[in-house]
Amino acid sequence: MEQLERVVQFIATGLVDQPEEVQVDSRRHGANVNLHLRVAPDELGRVIGRQGRIAKAMRTAVGIAAARQGVRANLEIES
């Protein structure tokens, strides 16, 4: 599921000041793909946003990409 990782990577690195701290990995369980996004602790806000608005938009983007591949994506964000 490298492609879904790339979606998260593209968005996250575009939002933070320390793109080198962005780490994305994923695990597939059947038709579900669990993605983990890790950013520098002080930049968590940049990928989550007020009331999780950015995280929600990122999940929408990943969800669309996943649906196109016939899988479901679940994105977790941690510092």
Binding site: I54, A57, T60, R68
Partner: peptide, 25 residues
Amino acid sequence: GMLIGRRGEHLAQLQYLVNLLVNRR
């Protein structure tokens, strides 16, 4: 069609992301 979504909801979210990414740059 997937990029639009119900009532344009996906499109609104993608637009938000593009705005964030463009303005960050």
